[in-house]
Structure formats: C-alpha cells, structure tokens
C-alpha cells in the first residue's frame, strides 16, 4: 500500500505543478477573420492576442483612471450600444465638460484600419490612445502618469502579471492591451452579412436599396468593411467656427484641404450624428446632402455625377443601410463594462 501512495503523491504533485504552469501562461486568443474579408492590416506578431491581455484592455477601456481627474474613460465617448461612438453630440465632450472639435469615431473592425482619426494623423492602432489620453479637451493626462497610477493599484498589478507574464507596467503594455481589446471588436453579423452567407434574405425594399448603394456609394464605402480607408472631400462647406481643414493639417499639402477619412457604415443606424463634425442628425439628411451634389470640379470623380435619387429611392437606401446593424455586436457581453 505504501508504494502506490507515494507514487500517487509524486504524480499528483506533478499534475498540480503542470496545471499551475499552464494557469500562469496567458491563454492565446485567435481572431476569426470573417469569410470573404481581406487580410487584417494589424501586425499581430508584435502584439499576440491573449484572453488576459484582452481582459486587461477591456478593464482599461472602461476605467476613468486614464484621465487626469478620474472622470473620463474611453467608454465616455465610445459607447458599445451605439457602435462605440458618442451618440447625440455633434462634437464629443471630455474633461471638465470641455468640447472637442470633432465627432468621435466608431470603433469596430480596427484590425483592418491603416490609419486612425478623421485626418489619418495616427499611423498605428497602438498609439491612437495617446490622443484622447493627452488631449486637454478629452482626458488631459500624461501616459507616464497613467502608468504610475496603475503601478500603485494592486488590481492592475495582478492584471498585468496575468497578461504579460510579469508584473511590469509600462506605457507600451498599457497601449498594447488597449489595442488587444479594440482588435477584438469585430462586427460581422448584420443582416447584410447574413444575406451574403445565405442565412437571411433582403426585403424588396432592402434589395433595391442595396442596388442603389452599389451604384452610388460603394466606390468609397467599399464592401465588406464599408470604407476605402482613403481620404476624400465630400462637398461639405467649411464651418468657420471650427476651421477644420482635415487631412491638410497633417500633410501640409494644399491638395488635401478638407479631406477626411471615409468612415465605415457598419451600424450606422445608431452612430448618429453624422460627418466629422456631426452636422447631420439623420441618415436622410446625409443622403440629401449627397443627392444635392454634382457638377463640381472640386469633388472627387465618384461624386461628380449627380445621384438624382427619388424620394422612394432614398427611403430604400436607408432601409438597406439599416441592414448593416449588428445587434449581436452592439450587445455582446464580452465587450461590455467588466463587472467583477
């Protein structure tokens, strides 16, 4: 009896040791690329996704610790239920009730984004978060101070240990963890996607709207991501109170005056108000704007031919745009406020 017991003990402790070892290692996460989508732009080899890294990023995303006075989190301007944007405000507001100069962008399918912000000034997802953290109108904080606040928190010491295998908290890791959360925000389960997968069918109205979309909108809002990732001038007059010259501010190239990034249209039903300065409250206003354009040499060639959509056609187009709503994404519990 003595011998087997001893062996059992040795075997048991070995199993326990191995289990402890696997528990310590972060669990790899794999991004599922939806069928028919292009290869992601983000280089995952420099920031391998893990469950623990994702959860750390999620905790940071919802934590106002990133702001100077602990009042503003990323989620303050990027709400899940509205496609991770700031609904109902033309211009997004931040710390001390200060108002910025643009409407916050949506956050989804960011692994495919080549540039960030309305003017594309940011070249990599990792460094995007530096903007809201340091902007005096948003979080008005420094990354160095964020790191020192996190280093004092036992909760974050444990989260960083779990995510990176050691408890060292650095600026790089804060940013990479935020990226991990944001990279997982994939919206690919709208009715439109289901129709393409033959799991659903469009109504006649939606089908007609899709046809109109393909002729009039898809050259910039390329399927399946609904953006060309390019910068375009779309005929909006300059608002003199903001004087936002868009891409030209970044490149100092006068040819890029008033060029803004083509945003995705996924979940557009809920991401109002529209345009870089949120000047349109309703989708019908957006379509009316494009319908009124044409015969203007300052416009890109895609917009030079007038659309001439009838009242009925405009309604059909809106019906199609509503099929880009992905409720599974907007209410996915994995992306919501982390309750402990």
């Amino acid at each position: 009896m003595k011998v087997p017991f001893k062996y059992l003990f040795v075997l048991g402790s070995m199993v326990l040791f191995l289990m402890a070892f696997t528990l310590l290692k972060p669990t790899p996460l794999y991004l599922e690329i939806p069928k028919g989508w292009p290869k992601p732009h983000y280089d995952f080899s420099k920031n391998p996704l893990t469950e623990e890294g994702f959860q750390l990023g999620r905790t940071l995303f919802y934590d106002p610790i990133l702001s100077r006075d602990n009042t503003i989190s990323c989620a303050s301007c990027h709400l899940q239920a509205t496609g991770f944007t700031h609904v109902d405000h033309e211009l997004s507001h931040g710390i001390d009730g200060k108002i910025g100069t643009r409407n916050s962008m949506t956050l989804m399918n960011l692994a495919w984004s080549k540039s960030f912000m309305w003017d594309g000034g940011v070249n990599h997802l990792d460094v995007q978060a530096l903007n809201p953290i340091t902007s005096p109108d948003e979080m008005d904080e420094t990354l160095a101070n964020v790191v020192s606040k996190l280093q004092k928190s036992e909760k974050y010491q444990a989260l960083f240990l779990a995510a990176f295998d050691d408890a060292n908290i650095t600026g790089q890791r804060v940013l990479k963890a935020l990226s991990q959360f944001e990279l997982m925000l994939i919206s690919s389960n709208s009715k439109y996607d289901k129709v393409l997968r033959k799991e659903a069918v469009f109504t006649d109205q939606e089908q007609n709207g899709y046809k109109l979309f393909k002729t009039n909108c898809a050259s910039c809002h390329n399927e399946p991501l609904f953006t060309s990732e390019k910068f375009e001038r779309n005929g909006l007059p300059l608002v003199t109170t903001l004087n936002d010259i868009g891409r030209q501010k970044i490149t100092e190239n006068s040819k890029e005056y008033m060029l803004f990034k083509v945003p995705t249209l996924r979940n557009i039903q809920f991401t109002f108000p529209y345009m870089h300065d949120g000047r349109f409250k309703k989708l019908t206003e957006v379509i009316k704007h494009y319908n009124s354009l044409g015969n203007d040499k300052n416009l890109p060639k895609q917009l030079q031919k007038p659309m001439h959509l009838s009242d009925f056609e405009r309604v059909d187009l809106v019906a199609f745009l509503h099929t880009l709503t992905d409720t599974a994404f907007l209410f996915d519990k994995r992306f919501s406020f982390p309750r402990e």
Partner: peptide, 18 residues
Amino acid sequence: GAMSGDLDPTKGMYWAWQ
C-alpha cells in the same frame, strides 16, 4: 506602434495628434 525602453511613449517623445 507602441515601443519599449527609451522609445516607450511615457518618455514624452512621441506625438499624439500626428
């Protein structure tokens, strides 16, 4: 993207808006 060591953005030597 985000680098480490002397290139870590906490050093205040990385631009945010551009």
